[in-house]
């Protein structure tokens, strides 16, 4: 009906014009330009010199390049894997134990508290933690001193052996609220009768968690894992605010390495290469992920 009526009413296309223009100017052309720059050696001034694939060859043999991506993997652990697992467990625990036993208000109160770090800019969160982790007068070392654990005081962000773990800890702390809130919302869909039946059959809490909660939250788990993985690969602000990739390259990540090449050491061609590789990686991961998700959904619907 709508189609018959709307076919004489053409003229919708004109509404796409502003959007398409903006996309061309601010996304498509810059993206293509960046890929182009990645085939050149360029300081940002004067004419770029064509070097074909030299930047990519250089990247393959560059320890910093690999260190950056290795640290992005650490960030996936800290921003995707751990928060998803902790979030699942916490959400189920709040939903079917705390809420049942102490009421929804208590559960909502804890949920809001755990979500709190998510409401501030991640850069500010990183600044807060940098302040706490300061070696000389920072709150964490001061606390350790105060309780007689002076031996454990440490230059957390300044020592190459602990810097990445400190950053990871901060990111876990920052991220937990996101999966928690999404999973708790998803749990509202779950039919309480399923839980009752399982309990009457003698299923333990963990049994129900594994056999009911996790399978039912699948769509939410997919969304959370994909979005947080992309965030982990794009992480820039926290690294800038806490360590600037240091000490040495201990916390260097892909985006910061690219920024450094662009704006700190005027190695624009190489920075563009790094950015292009990162983009390619994110797109490939997204496509593979969506395909896996689709396949598993089809299998799921067949059962």
């Amino acid at each position: 009906m709508v189609n018959k009526l709307s076919s004489p009413f053409k003229g919708y296309t004109v509404f796409l014009v502003p959007g398409i223009l903006m996309f061309l100017i601010f996304i498509v052309l810059p993206f293509l330009a960046n890929v182009g720059i990645s085939f050149t050696r360029w300081s940002g001034v004067g004419a770029p010199a064509w070097v074909a694939l030299a930047n990519y060859e250089r990247a393959l043999g560059d320890a910093t390049f690999w260190a950056s991506f290795k640290n992005n993997l650490y960030l996936i652990v800290a921003m995707t894997i751990l928060p998803t697992l902790i979030g699942l467990f916490l959400a189920a625990f709040l939903f079917d134990y705390i809420a049942v036993k102490f009421g929804n208000r208590v559960a909502s109160f804890f949920r809001a508290g755990f979500y709190f770090p998510q409401i501030i800019p991640v850069v500010i969160a990183a600044i807060v933690w940098r302040w706490i982790l300061q070696p000389d007068w920072g709150a964490l070392n001061w606390l350790l001193d105060a309780v007689g654990l002076s031996a454990l005081t440490h230059n957390w962000l300044g020592d190459a052996s602990t810097a990445m773990f400190a950053v990871m800890g901060v990111m876990v702390w920052f991220q937990i609220g996101y999966p928690l809130v999404i999973f708790m919302a998803g749990l509202q869909r779950i039919d309480p009768e399923l839980y009752e039946a399982a309990s009457l059959d003698g299923a333990t809490w963990f049994g129900r968690f594994y056999h009911i909660t996790i399978p039912l939250l699948r769509p939410e788990i997919y969304v959370v894992v994909l979005t947080t993985m992309i965030h982990a690969l794009k992480t820039f602000g926290p690294i800038y605010a806490m360590t600037r990739g240091g000490p040495g390259n201990a916390t260097m990540v892909a985006s910061y390495f690219s920024y450094k090449n662009f704006f700190e050491i005027s190695n624009v061609g190489y920075g563009a290469t790094m950015a292009t590789v990162l983009t390619g990686l994110i797109i490939v991961i997204t496509i593979i992920y969506i395909n896996i998700q689709r396949r598993m959904e089809q299998q799921g619907s067949m059962i």
Partner: peptide, 17 residues
Amino acid sequence: LLAITLPNEVLAYPLYY
């Protein structure tokens, strides 16, 4: 969808320029 996943780094320098 692709534009959503794009890291800003890949647009940064050309836009800056």
